[in-house]
Structure formats: C-alpha cells, structure tokens
C-alpha cells in the first residue's frame, strides 16, 4: 500500500516536472483608460464625465512570429474578453519553452468562415450575447457607456462592431513587437479610442457597414505592449 502511495507521488512529481518543461506563458489583457485601469459602472473619467458599463471583445487566431515567420499557432483560438470578468482577461499559452519569437499576432474579432459555420460552443456560444439575432454574424466588440457629449437617451453610447461580408468585414489583425518575457501584457487603452472619435457625432453603431469598419480600424490601434 505504502509503495503504491510512493509510486503515485513519484508520478505526480514527475508529471509536474514534465509540465513545467513546457512554458505556460500567459497573455494578459489590461483594459485601461489612460494610465488607470478601466472600471465599469462606478468610475467617471475626464471632464466629459464618461462612464463605461460594458467592454467585451473577441480575440482570435493568436500566433507568435519570429521576425516574419509563424513559429506557433494557438489551436481553436477564440477568446471572449470581458472587462468585468478578470478570468476572461488572460490566455494561457502552451508553446514550447525554447521558442524564440519577436512578435505576437492576433485578430480583433471573428473571421468570416467562423461567421458562416453555424452554432458553436465555448466562448463562441450565442448565449454569450456576442451574436446578432436579427442578422447572422458575431459582434466583434461591444463598448457601452454614458457621456455628456452624447445627446441621446440617458446620454448613452453603444458600439456593437462586427460584420464579416466583403467590404463590411470589420475583422482587424494586430501585430505587436514583444521582448522575451514569461508573460505578455497587452494594454487596451480606451482613452485613445475616444480621442480618435467625436462622441457627440458618433455614439450609436449597432450594425455592420462602413462606419463599423472604420471604427474597428481605430480600435485596432489602441492595443500596445505594456513596458516592463
């Protein structure tokens, strides 16, 4: 009996050691508003008194590049980030420990093939609230809140960005340079986004089209690697 326990312990330690031989880097996403962390609901930012009530977005197709060649690709790579759920804000990576890479590449949104492939599970399940019901397609990104600048009901702004067909394809590819770190910390700075648009003019986008594509392009530019 004792031998059996010893053997089990040995296996456990061995397996543990084996798992550690693989790097389990994390990609951590940090939604921010300028230099401070992004809070939903309670906090108010800047002189325009902006509140945020929701930030959700899809990250997909995560790859590591060494210079320009792909050295690692995440399988089944679809992640729904929700600023109100800390567990959703990191991606565990099982790449080989000796992997050399200089860039990380990922998509903001869901690719067109997945958009036409029927019902999916996990983060892609329509119960996650990121799928349009009146017209098929994933919502790549939701940002909602209030601002005095918006002359709308309750000063609300709502951006539901998506679209996968032809010119309306809102998917954005983001490539960032990384230094060799155990974890990759990526900032998503919403202040930069709001600086790039005029909330008094643009505050309700909830269907695919030109506006959604232009805004998605602006969103793709607010991702950056956190300097150590």
């Amino acid at each position: 009996m004792k031998l059996k326990i010893l053997f089990a312990l040995f296996v456990a330690i061995f397996c543990n050691g084996y798992l550690h031989a693989q790097s389990t880097d994390k990609i951590l996403f940090h939604p921010t508003f300028g230099k401070s962390a992004l809070h939903l609901d309670d906090s108010c930012y800047t002189k325009d008194s902006i509140y945020f009530s929701q930030l959700k977005l899809y990250i997909s197709g995560v790859e590591f590049l060494n210079k320009d060649s792909i050295v690692w690709k995440e399988a089944n790579s679809y992640h729904l980030l929700d600023a109100s759920d800390e567990k959703s804000l990191y991606i565990l990576v099982n790449s080989p420990s000796d992997l050399k890479f200089t860039k990380i590449k990922f998509n903001l949104g869901i690719d067109s093939i997945t958009n036409v492939s029927g019902a999916m599970g996990g983060d892609l399940d329509p119960t996650k609230g990121m799928y349009w019901t009146w017209q098929s397609g994933y919502i790549n990104l939701k940002l909602e809140g209030k601002s005095k600048l918006c002359k709308t009901r309750n000063n609300e702004f709502q951006f539901h960005l998506g679209g996968y067909q032809n010119a309306d394809n809102a998917l954005q590819t983001i490539i960032l340079n990384v230094s060799e770190n155990k974890n990759i910390d990526i900032l998503i700075d919403i202040e930069k986004m709001l600086a790039a648009i005029d909330l008094s003019e643009q505050n309700q986008i909830m269907s695919p089209g030109k506006e959604a594509v232009l805004l998605s392009e602006k969103f793709s530019k607010i991702f950056s690697i956190q300097k150590q």
Partner: peptide
Amino acid sequence: GAINHLDMQALAPMSNPLEMDNKIGRVV
C-alpha cells in the same frame, strides 16, 4: 436572407420583440 446558416435561424424569432421576445441565454 438575413440569416446565413440554419443553426442560427431559430435565434431570430426567439429574440424578435414581435415574435418570442426572449434571449437564448434565458431560454437555456
């Protein structure tokens, strides 16, 4: 042709405020 796949079709009447006025999350 608003719906691109048979799997996603049921979502539309389920969510339409003039039809079932529900949400798939609530249904589940």
